[in-house]
Design a protein around this nucleic acid. Structure first.
Lengths: 150, 150
DNA sequence: TGACTCATGTCAGGATTCTGACATAGATTC
DNA sequence: GAATCTATGTCAGAATCCTGACATGAGTCA
């Protein structure tokens, strides 16, 4: 049952637990976004644009953890629906700065409230100290995984 | 930049940080599994079978956080490659208990070592106390997200 | 100036995963 | 015992995402 030298005990593995938590969070987000006819990637893109207007396709892709090809088709759909706008020609280089339309901003407000309620629920059982612990620990993990200087 | 009442600050959101960590972990796992010609879902399935032999298709799907249809096509591929075996007829009900073959066990050993090295790297900067904190906090989040009694 | 490198936007094709649907076996209820 | 409910395995089609590839624009360097 426990580690026998050649396996990972999924019951105690932090990696597995991380995936489990992430999966539960994604499922919860999908549930509250479905009534708004919006996917998680959809929402991530709009939220990124609200905080940093003018982000390019590639930058949005990195922020939403997908490839720029995937983000591109998503942006085309959002553009067609009138949630975002992109200039026809790049003002400088090839980068097309994307911006939310008023319609996109309205849709985002509802989605953002829904997602915030999920995050509140997720953190309900944690103290303020535990939340800051979690932030510090997760940032440490990311740092180590990306292999900075190690 | 900070919370203006209608958005989630992605720079401080634990939900976003969770997704970022999970994404970094997945990328790191894909990197070390690629030389072994094995995907993450692939590996998850074999690891589950090593710890709990005789698991059914549906149980494996839940353990790997995919649908049973997805797990089914994966099992068919693993069966074709000779990594797992399933009886032609169900001994009881419709449940087909799956087991690792010696070949599957050998492939898993290499993959497991590779994944373990990733997990070690991920936790390298954390104290023992921080690791147990992380475990407790993540379990708490899962519990809250699944909405038990709340 | 010209060659080189890098990042970007975009198109095409393929792989992966999901949703929908169906038949079947066991458990539950009456 | 019959009806109902739930869970399982499986097939088919669709949606999503990725890999590969190409042309273009900006920065670097000789």
């Amino acid at each position: 049952m426990s580690q026998d030298g050649a396996g990972i005990d999924l019951g105690t593995s932090l990696g597995y637990l991380l995936k489990e938590t992430s999966s539960a969070l994604r499922t919860a987000m999908e549930e509250v976004l479905r009534p708004l006819e919006m996917s998680v990637t959809h929402y991530s893109c709009l939220e990124l644009l609200a905080q940093r207007p003018g982000l390019s396709n590639s930058e949005l892709a990195r922020g939403a953890f997908v490839t720029r090809q995937t983000m591109n088709v998503l942006l085309q759909a959002l553009e067609r629906d009138g949630d975002v706008t992109r200039p026809a020609r790049a003002p400088v280089g090839k980068v097309l700065p994307t911006r939310l339309t008023p319609r996109g901003r309205r849709r985002l407000e509802k989605a953002s409230a829904a997602v915030r309620s999920v995050e509140v629920r997720m953190l309900a059982g944690l103290t303020e100290a535990e939340r800051s612990d979690a932030t510090r620990i997760l940032r440490n993990m990311i740092h180590s995984l990306r292999g900075d200087g190690a």
